[in-house]
Write a protein that binds this DNA or RNA. Structure first.
Length: 616
DNA sequence: TCAGAGTGCGCC
DNA sequence: AAACGGCGCACGCTGA
């Protein structure tokens, strides 16, 4: 596993921690304001040989596409912090050399600095140590504040005044502004050792790899930064067409819903903005729906899909209700997109967060591109630049493969190792038939069972999910029988659950879960079983895709854009002639990143090249 | 009028 | 002890 540790600075940190048990003693709050090329070149020399640099920037705003970097601060142990004014220094070659040197760059939320510098034509190269990411990795699952001030308070016991941070960094800069700018870099730098020490201690306590994970997250910074900078393009014509289509479908469903309830749909347009958007009974209001159904003899507790689907035959309006809900949901998603179009780039630039999800997954918002409906009428609105292709590659059945590795279930392990179709195998096993005789529908049942029961789904829920997601009608009795047989056959999964419950429910129960890479999620209280059993699987998938991104970064350039990551899928936009080669590289990188974690279970990656996100 | 908890659902 | 997990978002509704 030598390639495993390409971004890992564990050994360096260990020696650093031993050498400097009291980091604040090395903190130098002195600073120099650099306002000319001459001054820069005169002062920067000693910083070139340093192995660790604290980095921070001050900018005229928060948008890398239109705001500017004003100050770049460089801190290093025992030296004054350089505060370089980019508006006054016209030749910054020396600074660029420093920022692309192999020195460790320490900062807090370096993604932002990376982006601001990148759009100013100043590349910032790793390795990185990001105090924010490290603090979140240290406390994954717990509710903690990870602002610079909060971490400085926690690790160094210093109250950091952040009042100058929100001040304007345009025009004349006061001494106070310059001082706080310098201090941010100096304090970020000073956080590395105490944080590394805490990460090491936690690793020992949990038999995990906190520092490794913190370094992995830090190494992902360029990938995350580029996803946000690149964004995705929405074709205006296709988009308008899609909206119109879904509006009609939604309206049709509404009419049928009302008719089935014996109501008339009122479609007059109101001029008053305060008027409700839907006239008459609103299928979007659970209260109104419950009341209307009750009046017609059907009393329910809720109106969500899972409740409705159980009784869908009991009233003719119910299928139309589900249809309207679907169309309305899709339309909501669509309507939310244009307001996120960037005024300059005309693209959607989501906010991508590496460490906000308790599982270790990426999350994405404004807009939530990870939840764009799969409907090809919508996905084909997401297009590539002229002369480019979209490449999407996803890990095949990755969670089930990870579960096979974790549970060591003999059947699952053997099935994957011999390249069998696992859903088909499950169906054949539970229905007592040969795999060759399994029908498409029966395979779908196998899929529903595999994905559900692995995390402890009940028979009742299985019955529901089979119908909702796979369109399979299952009697309660059959669901119960399948549930029982599943755990009789998949003994490894059954044992995994039994042991898990023992560890969780004993007097001094576990309050953390660990991935195969050593990422830890903690709970402040007793974890729910289902959350706890799922965390290592989902988290390991996050480990894999983040390892893949780190390996992918060197391949990203002006012709190879990273667009988005959707949990087990990586999407690139690549110059047309390069697409086949890059697709192959991407596939290999993803396999290599994941394989060591679940060997000898094989990894499979499905890769497609197309013109839009629909894959066409 | 508006914040906020609740409901429901898209993706993996 | 609980009954698949992880997200973000839009909406209807409520109470101040």
């Amino acid at each position: 596993m030598s390639d495993f540790d390409c971004y890992d600075n564990t050994l360096a940190y260990q020696s650093a921690c031993k050498a400097h048990p009291h980091p604040p003693s090395r903190l130098n709050l002195d600073w120099r304001y650099i306002t000319s090329t001459h001054q820069l070149e005169a002062e920067i020399d000693p910083y070139r040989t340093r192995k660790v640099l604290g980095i921070d920037t001050e900018t005229t705003g928060l948008d890398p596409h239109q705001d500017q970097v004003r100050l770049v601060q460089i801190a290093t142990a025992g030296m004054p912090t350089l505060v370089i004014d980019l508006w006054k220094v016209d030749e910054i070659h020396a600074l660029k050399t420093l920022l692309t040197s192999p020195a460790l760059k320490v900062g807090h939320t370096l993604k932002f600095d990376w982006q601001m510098l990148a759009t100013s034509g100043i590349p910032l190269h790793g390795p990185f140590f990001d105090a924010y990411l490290a603090h979140k990795a240290l406390n994954a699952g717990l509710k903690v504040k990870s602002s610079l001030a909060a971490i400085v308070q926690e690790c160094l016991g210093v109250e950091l005044d952040k009042s100058a941070q929100r001040s304007r960094f345009a025009g004349h800069l006061s001494d106070e502004q310059l001082q706080y700018a310098a201090w941010d870099a100096a304090y970020s730098l000073a956080l590395r050792q105490p944080l590394a020490q805490r990460l090491q201690q936690a690793s020992a306590q949990f038999t995990a790899r906190f520092l490794h994970i913190a370094n992995l997250e830090s190494a992902c910074i360029p990938a995350t930064a580029l996803m946000e900078l690149n964004g995705m393009a929405l074709d205006p014509d296709r988009f308008e067409q899609a909206v119109t289509t879904f509006q009609h479908q939604k309206q049709a469903a509404l009419t049928q819903f009302h008719q089935a309830l014996g109501l008339e749909t009122q479609t007059q347009i109101s001029l008053l903005p305060s008027e409700p958007k839907v006239f008459g009974l609103n299928p979007g209001s659970s209260q109104q729906v419950l009341k209307a159904l009750a009046e017609q003899g059907l009393t329910l507790k809720a109106t969500d899909q899972r409740t409705i689907i159980r009784v869908v035959d009991r009233h003719p309006a119910l299928p139309h209700l589900l249809e309207w809900r679907h169309q309305a949901k899709v339309l909501d998603t669509l309507n939310s997109l244009p307001r996120h179009r960037h005024p300059l780039t005309q693209r959607l630039h989501p906010q991508v967060r590496q460490v906000s999800a308790r599982s270790g997954r990426f999350s994405c918002r404004n807009p939530a591109l990870q939840t764009v409906p799969h409907d090809s009428a919508i996905r084909r609105c997401f297009v590539v630049r002229p002369g480019h292709r979209l490449i999407k590659a996803d890990y095949s059945q990755i969670e089930l493969r990870i579960a096979a590795k974790i549970t060591q279930d003999p059947l699952l392990v053997k099935a994957y190792r011999t390249g069998q179709d696992v859903h088909r195998m499950t169906a054949a096993l539970l229905l007592d038939m040969a795999q060759t005789q399994v029908t498409r529908e029966q395979r779908r049942l196998g899929k529903a069972i595999n994905f559900g029961l692995i995390y402890g789904m009940s028979a009742a829920r299985l019955q529901l999910e089979a119908q909702l997601q796979y369109g399979l009608i299952l009697s309660h009795k059959d669901a119960l029988a399948l549930h029982k047989r599943y755990f009789q056959r998949f003994t490894g999964v059954a044992q995994w659950h039994r042991q898990g419950k023992r560890q969780l429910y004993r007097h001094d129960g576990l309050r953390h879960a660990k991935t195969l890479l050593g990422r830890v999620r903690q709970w402040a209280d007793k974890p729910d079983f289902a959350e706890w059993i799922n965390a290592p699987v989902q988290g390991t998938c996050a480990d894999m895709i983040k390892r893949a991104l780190v390996a992918l970064v060197p391949h990203l350039n002006a012709d190879v854009h990273l667009l988005i990551v959707v949990h087990d899928e990586i999407v690139l936009e690549v110059r047309q002639d390069l697409a086949p080669d890059i697709a192959q590289t991407l596939t290999q990188v993803m396999i290599a990143a994941a394989q060591p974690l679940i060997a000898p279970i094989p990894i499979e990656v499905d890769t497609q090249i197309g013109h839009s996100w629909a894959g066409d």
